[in-house]
Design a protein around this nucleic acid. Structure first.
Length: 369
DNA sequence: CAGTCGTGGCA
DNA sequence: TTGCCAAGACT
């Protein structure tokens, strides 16, 4: 066996021997690469593989996907976060059927026109699925280049990105973009990790300037971290005639198009109970009364740590339809239908708590005497 | 361009 | 426990 004499060949050899066995690496079909790349945006591999398998069982091809409802898509995506990704997948599937004969374009330029596909993902689909000579730069590659070329710029800054895309294009070996691009990202995930990189196993170690100058711990230069803000919220599970009230959030808001129980943030000096009453009226014009406390849960989203106070509430008025001010739709549903709707993680936690605690058993509309 | 969008795992 | 982190896109 010959010793690789270029950086490119060293990486290709390493990837050939050390790549992980992933569901979409058996066939590299455009559809599977597209979905996997969207799922992998800001999401870790171990989490994605489970969702990917379920997705492919539910929507085996583009035609099936294009005919699905937004609710079905979001239910399959529930728990993965960044829900605009799922809504954009549906939009793109419909565009593909209408304008592209149901197929994914192979050129970076055409891919960039599709919703949810930006510079990284367009390059990833073009190179990984079609083996086009197109570079990619993701967070892994930014980290590798910052070390490999000892880049003295803040990680993720516009200036660093510009230089890294230029480097990626220069380095790309012809006709091998699929394995070279994946090789870089795989190296970032397995060897050139954010913390404790394993330089002793790195095929690029002979070429690495940061390693040469003993600057690995200083590269990349971290961006200043965003602070986690603790906030308090309150929500009400409205039970009426054995049915639960849920509403569907606005599309361009957080958790867009997901279902939820009404509620919101506590205002200064407000008790959680007061918040639920106020929010219910502001969002639905329902006048409600607090029945009882269900639980308090804690969850994180984006830069917030949320303490969520959860109450069982009842209508304090006669039957009438709500007037929605913070939602696009509403439904009255039985307990059993909660499972088929997509909820934000915090509300799903609440639902799970109610099920596990036998909460619903005590709320039967026909109590035995 | 800087802010925003989720979530769960892990040190 | 708290902070950091993950194969970015959109406005």
């Amino acid at each position: 066996m010959s010793t690789p004499n270029t950086l490119q060949q060293a990486l290709l050899d390493w990837f050939d021997k050390n790549q992980r066995d992933l569901p979409w690496r058996s066939s590299y079909t455009p559809y599977q690469i597209w979905i996997s790349e969207i799922m992998l945006q800001q999401t870790q591999m171990d989490r994605v593989t489970v969702f990917f398998s379920r997705w492919m069982n539910t929507f085996p091809d583009i035609a099936t996907l294009a005919m699905a409802s937004e609710d079905q898509i979001l239910k399959c995506w529930e728990g993965l976060g960044y829900y605009s990704r799922a809504r954009n997948i549906l939009k793109t599937a419909q565009i593909l059927v209408e304008r592209h004969e149901g197929r994914i374009p192979s050129s970076r330029k055409e891919l960039l026109k599709l919703p949810g596909i930006g510079p990284y993902t367009a390059g990833a689909i073009a190179s990984i699925s079609f083996n086009r000579d197109v570079p990619v730069v993701d967070a892994n590659i930014e980290r590798i280049f910052a070390r490999l070329f000892n880049i003295d710029l803040i990680s993720g800054s516009p200036e660093a990105k510009r230089i890294h895309w230029q480097k990626a294009e220069t380095l790309l070996p012809p006709k091998q973009a699929r394995n070279f691009n994946q090789g870089l990202m795989e190296l970032g995930a397995l060897i050139c990790r954010p913390k404790k990189p394993d330089c002793s196993l790195c095929p690029l170690a002979p070429y690495c300037l940061a390693l040469k100058h003993d600057l690995i711990p200083e590269r990349p230069i971290p961006k200043k971290s965003t602070k986690i803000l603790p906030i308090e919220m309150a929500t009400g599970v409205l039970l009426h005639n054995g049915q639960l009230f849920i509403q569907q959030r606005l599309e361009d808001d957080v958790w867009g198009s997901l279902w939820e129980f009404p509620g919101g943030r506590l205002k200064l000096g407000e008790t959680p109970e007061q918040t639920v009453v106020r929010e219910f009226f502001e969002e639905t014009e329902f006048k409600i009364e607090i029945d009882s406390k269900i639980t308090t849960t804690i969850h994180h989203f984006t830069r917030y740590k949320v303490t969520l106070h959860c109450f069982l509430v009842t209508l304090a008025q006669q039957d009438s339809d709500p007037v929605l001010h913070a939602a696009q739709e509403f439904k009255w549903i039985p307990f059993t239908a909660l499972a088929s709707h997509a909820f934000p993680a915090g509300h799903r936690k609440l639902i799970n708590h109610m099920e596990e605690s036998g909460f619903f058993l005590n709320q039967s509309p026909c109590k035995p005497d």
